[in-house]
């Protein structure tokens, strides 16, 4: 029983960590702010959810699990709000999103953004 629980928890924690890394990788790879928000969303939803679920399996039926659940609930309520605030602020400030099929020269577009944002 204990072994089974450890295996489940291990799988959840490792896959959660993996999704967090994918989110971080997306944060680096994707071409502009709006696209990067999707990558941050991966970390906030599935990455956090899987890691906290893995910890909940370890916690069992106790107040520790309740606290972990509350962390997840707070995270899921606050993350879309702050992402919306960020997207809306960037949009109102006139930052145009990069549209259409993006070629693989994200470094070049980064460079262009930098020169245009510094008057």
């Amino acid at each position: 029983m204990e072994v089974l629980r450890d295996i489940a928890s291990w799988a959840l924690l490792v896959s959660g960590g993996g999704f967090c890394m994918i989110g971080g990788l997306g944060l680096l790879r994707l071409p502009d702010v709006y696209a990067r928000m999707h990558a941050a969303g991966i970390t906030d939803t599935l990455g956090a959810g899987l890691i906290l679920a893995g910890l909940m399996v370890q916690g069992g039926l106790s107040l520790v699990t309740v606290k972990l659940f509350l962390i997840l609930v707070f995270l899921l309520f606050t993350s879309p709000t702050s992402t919306y605030a960020l997207a809306n602020a960037a949009h109102r400030q006139g930052l145009a999103p990069l549209l259409g099929a993006t070629p693989l020269d994200s470094a070049a577009t980064d460079h262009k953004d930098e020169t245009s944002s510094k008057p």
């Binding site: 959660g16 967090c20 971080g24 941050a40 970390t43 995270l75 980064d110 953004d113």
Partner: peptide, 25 residues
Amino acid sequence: LGPTVYDRVLAVNSFGTKTVLLIAV
């Protein structure tokens, strides 16, 4: 890396989320 200030805010926000998870783990 930036380049815009919104990239930095987004990255710091994401960093904070991971800090929360790190503290829990």
